[in-house]
């Protein structure tokens, strides 16, 4: 059991990590909007635009629509934000191990990821607007579709680790960090791991309700969908939850597939033993490298995809996740299995 000082340190670390996640998540949102604007040959908003949006939304009136169920309507944004912030405590942030790593693993992360979407859907249903109800129904359908490949990816990774490294904790990020999957697989398993990574990459934009999988929000068609009736502070909370969730999704991909630190490479090839003797320098290098990896993942899975593709219909989204992406993930699992048969 942990002693009381350790508990305080963890609480402090957790609060700091949450605040940092909000700031960094919003900053990534700004970068995403700027890059998307440049891709469309626009100038785009300044990088601090999401902070301005939040500041503005906090000053707006928060309306409760007629026919809304008051406590659910105003409670769901809080629950969504809290669940998104809780995720921050269970995910490794580069050199910083998760503040609550001993108390939760990938299964908990998988469940916590559902809560913000579920809160949005419940908020949509409770707002008493038909448009929001349609959005909420679509969100539920989409969740049922993408959770399947997501679960396959995480379970088959965990299964692979129990098989290759017996005795290790298969659902802990630390296992992946100690031995990244690319070093454990042969040529067949490599293809399998790439397929699993691709499945996770396809799941990411719909986990974040981004184009082309933004049918639940669908601004031009449903007028904001399940968010249609939210205003002011409630909308700001969903906005922040969305930003944090984006960061968390990218951090999960980085943590599962690319947990490599940069400092050993810097130390080896640039021979900076004097600087590298200090752990702080290594910590800064790894932290920046982690932020860069998260940026690359978000750029590849969110920004590029949302500029390149139009919105898909909800039945198409469901089909994509339930058939091709699930098959891709299962094929990845099969290849990993064949890899373990051959002996690593």
């Amino acid at each position: 059991m942990m002693d009381i000082n350790d508990l305080y340190v963890r609480m402090l670390l957790g609060v700091l990590a949450m605040l940092a996640a909000v700031v960094v998540g919003l900053a990534y949102k700004g970068i995403d909007r700027k890059i998307a604007a440049h891709m469309q040959s626009r100038i785009g908003p300044p990088l601090r635009q999401p902070f301005r949006d939040i500041s503005k939304l906090m000053q707006k009136e928060t309306i409760t629509p007629d026919g809304a169920v008051d406590w659910i309507f105003h409670g769901m944004p809080v629950i969504g934000l809290v669940a998104a912030l809780l995720l921050v405590l269970y995910i490794p942030w580069g050199p910083l191990s998760p503040p609550l790593k001993a108390h939760g693993d990938l299964i908990l992360v998988l469940y916590l990821l559902i809560i913000p979407s579920l809160a949005m859907a419940l908020g949509g249903f409770s707002s008493g607007s038909p448009v929001a109800a349609i959005g909420a129904q679509r969100e539920m359908v989409m969740m049922m579709s993408y959770e399947f490949p997501l679960a396959i990816v995480i379970l088959s990774l965990a299964w692979f680790y129990t098989r290759v490294l017996p005795g290790s904790a298969p659902f802990a990020f630390t296992t992946m960090e100690a031995a990244p999957i690319w070093g454990l697989v042969g040529p067949i398993g490599f293809i399998g791991a790439v397929l699993l990574l691709l499945s996770l990459v396809v799941v990411t934009p719909s986990e974040l309700s981004k184009i082309p999988f933004d049918a639940p929000e669908a601004e031009t068609e449903l007028g904001g969908g399940l968010m249609a009736e939210y205003s002011g502070r409630d909308l700001a909370m969903f906005y922040i939850a969305d930003a944090v969730k984006g960061l968390v999704m990218a951090a999960i991909i980085v943590g599962l597939f690319f947990p490599h630190p940069l400092s050993p490479i810097v130390e080896k090839y640039y021979a900076l033993p004097l600087i590298m003797d200090q752990p702080v320098v290594a910590w800064i290098i790894d932290g920046l490298f982690f932020l860069f990896k998260v940026f690359l993942v978000l750029f590849a899975t969110v920004t590029t995809v949302r500029v390149a593709f139009p919105r898909l219909k909800i039945d198409k989204i469901s089909y994509i996740y339930l058939v091709p992406v699930s098959l891709m993930a299962l094929a990845g699992t099969l290849l990993l299995y064949l890899d373990t048969l051959g002996g690593v």
């Binding site: 300044p46 249609a228 009736e229």
Partner: peptide, 10 residues
């Protein structure tokens, strides 16, 4: 959008 103006649906 460079001035932060955005068209919203609701």
């Amino acid at each position: 959008e460079r001035f932060g103006i955005k068209l919203v649906g609701s």
